[in-house]
C-alpha cells in the first residue's frame, strides 16, 4: 500500500515537474537521466535478468538511431514509425549475434568481448559507408515544431516522451520479472546447467532476452537521434557509448526493476554536482564514475538497490 502510494507520488511529481521547473537546464538534465535509465533498462533485460553482460549494446542503440534517421531522411518516414523499424532491425541483428554467441556457448568475458567486437564492426562500417553519411553521420533535418515527426520546439514535450517511454519499459520489465520467462531468465543466470536440468531451453531464453533488450535499446537510439538531431558512428556505435549504457543499471542494481533509474539518478546527480563544484578539473566526474563503479562492484554487488533489498 505504502509502496504504491510512494510510487504514485513520485509519478505525480515527475509529470508535474515541467510545470513547476522553469529552468531549461534542469529539464534537460532530467531528460538525460530518464534517457539513460531507459537504455539502461534495455541492457538490464539481457545483462541483469538473463545474466549475459554485453559490452557492445551501442550496437543496438546505433541501429535504432540510424534506422529511424535514415528512414526519415531518405523516404520521409516519420521517426514515430521509424523507431519501430529501428527496433525491428535491432531485433533481427540481435538474433544473429545472439545465435552465434549462444550456439557456440560463449559466456562471461568471451560474450562481453564478442559483443564489443560486433559493435566495433558496425562502427567501422558506418564510418565508411557513404549512404549512411560515412564518418560525418546523419543530421536529422529540422522541421520546426512538428510533433508528427517527433520534433518539438519546446523541450517539455521531449520530457514527456522519454518519461512515457521509461514508464512503459519499467512496467514491461516489472511484468517480465513476474512472468514465467522472467523466472527462466533468472534461472539461467544463476545456474545454466541446473536450469537446463529443469527443462529450460537456455539458448531460447537467452535469445529472447537478447531480442527484447536490443529492441528497447534501439528505441532509445531513436529518441537520442530526434532529441539531438545528430548522430555519427562514434556516438552511435562507439565503445564509450556501450560503457555509458551499462554503467547505470549496474550501479543501480542489475536485475532489478528500479536499478537502471536509480543508477541514472545517482550518476546524473553526482555528475552535475562534480561539474558544478570542481570546475578547474572538469573531467573529474568521469574519474568519479570509475571510482563509484569500482566501489559498487566490491561493496554493492547488487547495486544501490541491494542496500534496501535483502538477497
Amino acid at each position: 500500500m505504502l509502496r504504491k502510494a510512494g510510487l504514485a507520488a513520485l509519478l505525480g511529481a515527475a509529470v508535474a515537474a515541467p510545470a513547476v521547473i522553469r529552468s531549461e537546464y534542469l529539464i534537460g538534465t532530467l531528460i538525460l537521466i530518464y534517457f539513460f535509465a531507459f537504455v539502461g533498462q534495455g541492457w538490464n533485460v539481457l545483462g541483469g535478468y538473463a545474466g549475459q553482460f554485453s559490452f557492445g549494446h551501442a550496437l543496438f542503440f546505433g541501429i535504432g538511431a540510424y534506422t529511424s534517421s535514415l528512414a526519415f531522411i531518405k523516404w520521409g518516414v516519420s521517426p514515430w514509425l521509424g523507431m519501430w523499424l529501428g527496433a525491428a532491425v535491432a531485433v533481427a541483428v540481435s538474433v544473429v549475434t545472439g545465435h552465434l554467441s549462444f550456439r557456440y556457448g560463449l559466456r562471461g568475458a568471451y560474450f562481453a568481448l564478442v559483443m564489443l567486437a560486433f559493435a566495433e564492426i558496425f562502427r567501422v562500417a558506418a564510418t565508411n559507408w557513404e549512404w549512411v553519411g560515412a564518418s560525418f553521420g546523419l543530421l536529422v533535418p529540422l522541421r520546426g515544431n512538428a510533433p508528427m515527426l517527433f520534433q518539438f520546439a519546446v523541450k517539455r514535450w521531449f520530457y514527456y516522451v522519454i518519461l512515457a517511454m521509461l514508464l512503459m519499459a519499467t512496467a514491461g520489465v516489472a511484468r517480465l520479472q513476474r512472468s514465467r520467462l522472467g523466472y527462466e531468465m533468472v534461472a539461467v543466470r544463476e545456474n545454466e546447467a541446473a536450469a537446463a536440468a529443469l527443462g529450460i531451453d537456455a539458448y531460447r531464453v537467452k535469445l529472447i532476452a537478447m531480442a527484447l533488450s536490443a529492441g528497447i535499446t534501439a528505441l532509445g537510439g531513436t529518441f537520442y537521434a530526434q532529441y539531438f538531431s545528430y548522430v555519427d558512428p562514434t556516438i552511435g556505435f562507439g565503445s564509450a557509448n556501450s560503457i555509458e549504457i551499462l554503467l547505470r543499471p549496474i550501479i543501480g542494481g542489475a536485475g532489478t526493476i528500479w536499478g537502471p533509474l536509480l543508477g541514472s539518478v545517482v550518476l546524473g546527480v553526482l555528475g552535475e554536482i562534480t561539474r558544478g563544484f570542481v570546475k578547474a578539473y572538469a573531467g573529474l566526474h568521469l574519474v568519479l564514475y570509475g571510482v563509484i563503479l569500482m566501489v559498487a562492484v566490491v561493496f554493492l554487488p547488487h547495486g544501490v538497490m541491494g542496500l534496501w533489498r535483502r538477497h
Binding site: 563503479l293 562492484v297 554487488p301
Partner: peptide
C-alpha cells in the same frame, strides 16, 4: 563480470 567491471572502472579512473 564483476572482475571485468573492476578493470573497466580502473581504466575509466
Amino acid at each position: 563480470h564483476n572482475q571485468l567491471l573492476m578493470t573497466l572502472g580502473l581504466a575509466l579512473v
